[in-house]
Design a protein around this nucleic acid. Structure first.
Lengths: 200, 200
DNA sequence: CTTTGACAAAAGTGATCGCTGTGTAAAGCT
DNA sequence: AGCTTTACACAGCGATCACTTTTGTCAAAG
C-alpha cells in the first residue's frame, strides 16, 4: 500500500532524517499550523504511529526540526569561515551567507526574527538563542585560529559582537545586503588587531 | 457634566500633549487593542470628536504616541551621553539606560522587539527603524565630539554598530544587564582609537 | 520494531447573533 | 472659530452551537 521510499533498505537513523526533511518541507510549504502529522508520515513512507514513537508529539517534532535546521545552518557558516584564504574574507563570506540564507529560509528566519512565527516559536524557549550561542562558538574558533595571541575573553567578546551585529542587520535591514556586510566587516577590522601574529 | 481638567485654560498645543499622555497611559495599561478613543478623550477632558480632529483616526493617534515616546527616549539617551565626564562612561550610562528603560516601557520595548505588539506595529513601517536612525545620529554626535579626528564614515559605522549591539542585547539577552553593558562598551573600546586627539 | 485500526479528547471551522467601538456628519454651545 | 453633543452606518469582536478534523494513546497483528 505504501510505495513511497521502500523502508527496509534504510537504517534506523536515516528514517529520522527523512522525517525531519519531510516535516521541514511541509512546514516551509504550509506553515507549522498547517502541518499534519499524518502528512509527515506518508511523505516519509512510514506510519503516523512511528512519527509519534520518534518525536513524542507535534511539539517534539517541531523542536527537532528547528534544531536540525539550525545545526545545518551553523555548519554552513562554519564552512564559509574556514574555506576562505584570508580571515576577513571568511567573515565576509559567512556574513553574506547568513544574510542571504536566513532571509530565504522561512524556518530559520522566523527562528531569528520571531516574525511570522504562528505558533512555531512558543517551543523555542528564548528566540534566536539556539542560533546565537553555537554561532558565537563557531566564530570564536575562527578568531582563535587566526589571532592565536588574542586573550580568550577578547575572542568571545568579539565573536559574540560579530554574530549579534549580523543578526541585527537581518532583523532591521538598512540599505542593501552588501552595505550590511561591509558594516559588520568594517567593525571587525576596527576591533581586531592587524592580523599579524601567525606570520611574524 | 465634564469636571476633568477644565479645558479653557489650556493652550492648543498643550491639549495635544495631554491626549498623547493619556493615550500612552492607556496603551501601557490595556495595550493598543484595548485602547478606546472615548477613554482617551475623557481622560484628557475633551470630547471624542476632538481626538478625531487632532489625529484623524486610531492609527494616527498610535503613530503620534509612538513617535512622541521614541523622541523622549532618544532625548534620554542623549542626555546620558552628554552628562558624563568621560566619553566611555557616557556610553556606559546611555546603554544601561536603554537596556533598563526599554525593558520596562511596554511601548518602547514592543516598538523595538516587535513582541507583544498586538496590532501596534503594523503602523510603524519597519520595526525599530524610528529608533535606530535617530539613536545612531545621537551617538554619532557624541563620537564626533570626543574623537574629532575620526573620519566621518568611521564615525557613523561605529555609531550604528553600537546602537545595533545594544538593541541586540535588548532583544536577545544573555546574562544580566551589567554583562551586556560591558560587552557593548568593550567592543567600543576595542574599535575606537584611544581617545587622544582632544588633549594632545 | 513497525503497522493497523480504533478511539476519546482536543482543537479547528464556519455560521449566526448581539454588542461595542470606529469613523463621519450635522446641529448646538460658548 | 473651536469644541461638544447627538445621531447613525458599519466594520469588527466575542460568544455560542453544531460539525469536522486532528491529535495523542492503546492494543493487537505482521
Amino acid at each position: 500500500m505504501s510505495d513511497v521510499t521502500p523502508f527496509s533498505e534504510r537504517a534506523r537513523t536515516t528514517m529520522r532524517g527523512e522525517l525531519l526533511e519531510a516535516a521541514a518541507d511541509l512546514i516551509a510549504a504550509r506553515g507549522f499550523r498547517g502541518l499534519r502529522m499524518a502528512d509527515v508520515a506518508t511523505r516519509a513512507g512510514v506510519s503516523r504511529q512511528t512519527v509519534y514513537n520518534e518525536f513524542g508529539n507535534k511539539e517534539g517534532l517541531a523542536q527537532a526540526v528547528a534544531l536540525h535546521r539550525a545545526a545545518e545552518f551553523i555548519d554552513g557558516v562554519d564552512s564559509r569561515l574556514s574555506a576562505a584564504s584570508e580571515p576577513f574574507e571568511g567573515m565576509r563570506s559567512a556574513i553574506d551567507y547568513t544574510l542571504d540564507h536566513a532571509a530565504k529560509d522561512r524556518l530559520i528566519s522566523s527562528m531569528l526574527t520571531g516574525e511570522d512565527a504562528e505558533d512555531l516559536l512558543p517551543f523555542l524557549t528564548t528566540r534566536g538563542q539556539p542560533v546565537l550561542i553555537p554561532a558565537t562558538e563557531v566564530v570564536s574558533r575562527h578568531v582563535r585560529r587566526n589571532w592565536p595571541r588574542l586573550p580568550p575573553e577578547q575572542v568571545s567578546l568579539f565573536a559574540e559582537a560579530t554574530v549579534r551585529l549580523t543578526l541585527s542587520h537581518l532583523l532591521m535591514p538598512s540599505g542593501d545586503r552588501d552595505h550590511a556586510v561591509d558594516a559588520v566587516v568594517g567593525v571587525a577590522r576596527a576591533a581586531l588587531p592587524p592580523l599579524d601574529p601567525t606570520k611574524e
